[in-house]
Simulated assay, not measured.
Amino acid sequence: MQFASWRWNRIIAFFGGAGLLFLVPWSGLSPALPEWTIDVLLSVPVGLCVYGFTEQPRKVIALIPVGTALGIGGFALYRTSGVHLF
């Protein structure tokens, strides 16, 4: 296997995502932002790590962090709205 044939965009995405997974919680943003925003921000590095591991195209992988962020944000809005179904 030649060095030039490596998929550098996927390698960089994985290590960038892994680095951000450790950087975001220790960045000091936690006291300044609500807890759910940190969870939404952490969906981006998870998407980068998934892109680094899989062979799927970028458009397919982009749906993972976007869907996760929308789900977490929607659930946070539901919890703060005061409406309780259970």
Rank of each mutant, 00 (worst) to 15 (best):
V83A: 13
G73N: 05
E55V: 08
S43V: 05
D39C: 09
V44I: 15
F53W: 15
S30P: 01
L42G: 06
L23C: 07
G74Q: 01
I11M: 09
G19Y: 07
Q2I: 07
Y51N: 02
F75L: 11
I38D: 05
I11L: 09
G52C: 02
G52P: 00
F22H: 09
T80I: 14
G82Y: 05
L85R: 10
G28R: 13
L20I: 10
L42T: 07
W26F: 13
L48S: 01
F3C: 06
F75P: 00
W6A: 06
P57L: 09
N9A: 11
P31M: 07
F3Q: 15
A13F: 03
S5T: 15
C49T: 09
V44L: 15
P25T: 07
I38W: 01
S5L: 12
I12D: 07
G47M: 00
N9R: 14
L63R: 09
S81E: 08
L85F: 14
A69T: 02
A13Q: 04
T68N: 11
G19S: 12
L20S: 09
A69Y: 01
P34N: 11
G82Q: 07
G17Y: 01
W6Q: 12
L85D: 08
I38Q: 06
L33C: 02
Q56N: 11
F75T: 01
L41K: 04
N9L: 09
V66Y: 03
L48W: 04
A4Y: 10
F3Y: 13
G73I: 04
R7W: 04
G19P: 02
P34E: 14
P57N: 15
F3H: 12
A32R: 13
P45C: 02
T54E: 02
W36A: 10
G16D: 08
S27M: 10
V24Y: 12
F14R: 05
G19F: 14
F14V: 11
I64C: 00
Q56I: 05
R79F: 04
G67T: 10
A13V: 02
N9Q: 12
S5I: 10
L21G: 03
S43W: 02
F86K: 11
P34W: 07
G74H: 05
G52H: 00
H84C: 06
W36Y: 09
G71T: 14
L63W: 13
A13Y: 05
L63V: 12
F22A: 15
F14S: 01
